[in-house]
């Protein structure tokens, strides 16, 4: 193990680290929005849309991100749809994550007590008002643990971006290994890089879960 090798590689890893963070953030944000829309369309049984969402969720959940990325990056140009690797990575992460987030939200919405919804109806609330004041705040609080697990999962999945040559953390490490053969050093930095993102984040998310749960339900 050579410390000078590690120190010299840090500037490159820093770039990869920032790219991993950026793409994760964008992809996760997109996945949450897509997931929420999908989940609501199923919760309110929107005709047609509900069907399409059902098919999308099954396709997305039952195929690997790697093949999704290959299809988007190498396959879609055959239909005239050509995107940069960066854009493909984000599309892939949103496509994959959207279904996981949708299932997370759905779990939360389904967890709301039926009597809560009835007592909202009994006050004469409209569907929109019921969603705004009862279903959304409670369903969101119930889905936070699943959403948090998905966030961690999606960040780890960005490591697969390396297959379409996006220079994120994993790609940086593999590139350096290919050039200088210092496997131990670069793999160590790679693992520490993910640990720096994921350990504090999972502690933060656990704390957030408790706060949100307490805010909504008091226990």
């Amino acid at each position: 193990m050579s410390w000078s090798v590690i120190v010299q590689s840090l500037p490159m890893f820093q770039k990869g680290f920032i790219l991993t963070l950026q793409m994760s953030a964008l992809g996760i944000l997109g996945a949450i929005i897509l997931g929420l829309v999908c989940s609501l369309s199923q919760y309110f049984k929107v005709p047609v849309l509900k069907r399409i969402v059902g098919i999308y969720i099954e396709l997305s959940r039952n195929t690997p991100l790697l093949i999704q990325l290959f299809f988007i990056y190498y396959g879609l140009p055959g239909l005239g749809l050509k995107f940069s690797a960066y854009v493909c990575g984000i599309i892939g992460l949103v496509f994959l994550g959207g279904s996981y987030m949708a299932e997370g939200f759905t779990g939360g919405f389904d967890g709301i007590a039926k009597s809560q919804i009835e007592s909202g109806l009994a006050l004469g609330l409209s569907t929109a008002q019921l969603t705004r004041y009862v279903i959304f705040p409670q369903g969101f609080a119930l889905s936070v643990p699943a959403l948090a697990a998905n966030i961690i999962f999606l960040i780890k999945e960005t490591s697969i971006f390396t297959v379409i040559a996006i220079p994120e953390l994993t790609n940086t490490a593999l590139d350096l290994i290919g050039m200088y053969y210092k496997t131990n050093e670069y793999l160590l930095v790679l693992i520490i890089g993910y640990a720096i993102i994921l350990i504090p984040l999972s502690i933060l998310l656990t704390w957030l879960e408790r706060r949100i749960r307490y805010g909504a339900f008091g226990h």
């Binding site: 007590a113 009597s115 809560q116 009835e118 007592s119 909202g120 009994a122 004041y133 009862v134 705040p137 409670q138 609080a141 805010g215 909504a216 339900f217 008091g218």
Partner: peptide, 14 residues
């Protein structure tokens, strides 16, 4: 029509 339920069902988030 006011209605009151067995499980009171106040909204815990409000």
């Amino acid at each position: 029509i006011g209605m009151v339920f067995q499980s009171y069902d106040l909204f815990p988030n409000l």
